[in-house]
Design a protein around this nucleic acid. Structure first.
Lengths: 227, 227
DNA sequence: GCAAAAGTGTTTCCGCTACACCCATGA
DNA sequence: TCATGGGTGTAGCGGAAACACTTTTGC
């Protein structure tokens, strides 16, 4: 594809969240070209002149992670006149939730490296990407209370403790274990696998997976996770 | 300003909500030029090359309504490749809430007329504007339950019944009068003006206005309007 | 037997829901 | 005096919050 097929003044950037045992993380790329060379940034791309906006966002993600089936939604259009130093670029930001263990790094051209950074220990970022990430974090916090999307971040099989730690990381609060378990189980969204953790130096926890049907119903309808 | 100062592939459109006694309404313009000549549409505009996105949205609104101090937030970026027939245009939609009695019509150039349409009786609309309005309606419905923004649609002085009718219109449900009043008053956001309606053919209702301090606090913090 | 995390019940409290009649006013 | 909408109280229920100890397992 040639340069003239892209829309010059418009881009998409994607805030990709992952969860690594105990921490919420964001996938960043280190820019190998100016502007912003050497700085970390969100993966982003131009939009092709005949490409749907959502398609462009998915393309960026697939190119970077190889992941195609994931949770993704539009976040916000960032359009300050001076946000990009060379010329005017408005960016439509998306955020995505991925199972971090499915992710396989492949830094493309114009990128030095890619890396998962804890959301609370971000490096210096290019352009207004810090603001975009903060905004995504806020949205995730709101969303996770009304839709069961947090689960997109966990492996197929998980323990209730993992789920609780995930929620605690996203919401940045401590939760009561008993109340949390009661609430989650009352949603009847989990299937008890009758399996247990292996190789842990303490009582092994039960493993669960999602009941897809119920999960999809809750995703459509929303739920109240007032914890 | 000359043509070359605008970004060709990008626009903003604004869904302006008003409330007229009993109905939620949207301000539309009738297009006087192609494409879409003769159809109704959302007020929109191009974005200037050195203009912040939010500024562009506010400018459209000020040009059309003369209103400058109002509630406004970004809704969503609509970016289907074929949404605009002539060439590629991605639009960043905003929605605004105005006190309808403050609004003073002044159709600009390229516009036949402007008109408030009831949200449930819209005319045939240009482009994807129907979709944009539905999306704005949905957002308003969600938002009004967690932020006290509904009040932006009412006159300075209002009765509790007006407020209830407003909520019923937005949420498209019936509310119990007693429960509604108890809930609203418990927020301690209203100031009893010790005034009453005039010239009504029945018992005159008390008038209230907002306590700005409390209102702003609730706007920042959010509240739970589970009705 | 001890360290480390899993797992489990009960009580209290608050807010939502449901529900029907009297009041004030102008015509 | 009637029509019209304004304005009010209470009881029951359900879900959220607070709270601490026992169980299992590997080392």
């Amino acid at each position: 594809m040639t340069k003239k097929n892209i829309i010059k003044n418009l881009s998409t950037d994607c805030v990709i969240f992952g969860f690594d045992q105990a921490q919420l993380k964001v996938l960043l790329i280190k820019l190998a070209v100016e502007p912003g060379k050497g700085l970390w940034a969100l993966p982003g791309s131009n939009i092709l002149i005949d490409e749907d906006l959502d398609t462009a966002a998915k393309r960026v993600l697939a190119e970077l992670t190889g992941i195609e089936d994931l949770y993704m939604e539009q976040l916000y259009a960032f359009g300050n006149a001076k946000r990009f130093p060379l010329f005017r670029v408005i960016t439509v930001a998306y955020f995505a939730l991925v199972k971090i263990e499915n992710y396989d790094t492949k830094p493309g051209p114009k990128v030095f490296e890619t890396k998962w950074y804890p959301i609370n220990h971000l490096p210096k970022l290019a352009f207004d990407h810090k603001e975009i990430i903060q905004s995504a974090k806020k949205r995730l916090k709101e969303k996770v209370r009304i839709k069961p999307i947090g689960f997109e971040l966990l492996p197929q099989k998980f323990t209730l403790t993992q789920l609780q730690v995930l929620y605690e990381s996203i919401l940045e609060i401590k939760l009561d274990t008993r109340n949390f378990r009661r609430k989650i189980l009352s949603l009847k969204m989990l299937i008890d696998l009758n399996e247990r953790q292996k190789d842990v130096a303490h009582r092994a926890a039960k493993l669960y997976k999602f009941d897809k049907r119920k999960y999809n119903k809750l995703k459509a309808k929303g739920f109240n996770f007032e914890i």
